[in-house]
Design a binder for these strands. Structure first.
Lengths: 139, 139
DNA sequence: TTTGCTGCAAACGCTTTGCACATTC
DNA sequence: GAATGTGCAAAGCGTTTGCAGCAAA
């Protein structure tokens, strides 16, 4: 899974006419199989371990390139933007307490329509407490 | 409708032990019946006409007080936060082109559950093109 | 060789903060 | 009179930009 995802990304980059720089390859390695929905800053911090000196601008630049070609999604959930390498249709659960974001499989359902609006995407966010924080809150 | 909404807000403020300053009353007048989902900055700009010299900090302070007591909602849709005085359950449609946010009535449906997560609220965002921008795009 | 990408640092926009002063209760 | 709220300006944070140099194709 991990390898194929990374290969898919390399293909996507090449297919979009984007250069396979060492920084981008490092990002693919660090991010392609990430399920933590990191912020750009968090990803940059993590990358610095693997690629000392990589610039924040490069991280932002590559993330928006990946988003533009549909290889990842940008999530706006409040605070800093988060990025999700999983582009299959799914929803998100955000813990009010610890802030962690979890993927939630989307139930099969007829495509939503809104009168007078051309719907391209539907995003759904569940807010509340993750199991761990809910348990802690009951103590 | 307009008057009763404003009266409701004044009650909410008083009930929460918050002072009814002139700035806050001006905000109630300007915002209680607003359907444009303004940003704090936009609201501040509008308020300046009615209440010259009102400070941005006051606008932010009051908006977060109102949000805290449940009199309005803060929407995180990308870019600056928007505020919605309509706190009845409903969804939002955001135009990718002009950025306008529209309320969308929520279809009746069984309460959503997520395994291993205590859901408190569900937010849904429809992204695409509003009728006006869709028409412009077809030309 | 030709682009496009990178790193740096400065600038940006939105939001929060600290503090002296004013105002509401 | 005792809090609480206000305005101001500065600082905070995430993000973008401009540009000279570098590296991928």
């Amino acid at each position: 899974m991990a390898e194929s995802d990374q290969a898919k990304w390399v293909e996507a980059l090449r297919g979009a006419g984007l250069r396979l720089t060492r920084q981008r390859l490092a990002m693919v390695e660090c991010f392609a199989d990430d399920v933590s929905h990191p912020t750009a800053q968090a990803l940059h911090a993590r990358l610095c371990a693997r690629f000392p000196g990589i610039s924040v601008a490069t991280v932002y630049n590559t993330l928006s390139a990946l988003t533009a070609i549909g290889a990842c999604r940008k999530l706006e959930l409040g605070g800093a933007s988060r990025f999700d390498p999983n582009v299959t249709p799914h929803d998100h659960a955000v813990c009010d307490d610890c802030g962690r974001v979890r993927d939630v499989q989307r139930a099969r359902r007829a495509a939503a329509t809104v009168p007078g609006f051309e719907v391209h995407r539907v995003e759904r966010v569940f807010r509340g407490l993750c199991a761990q924080c809910a348990r802690a809150a009951r103590v």
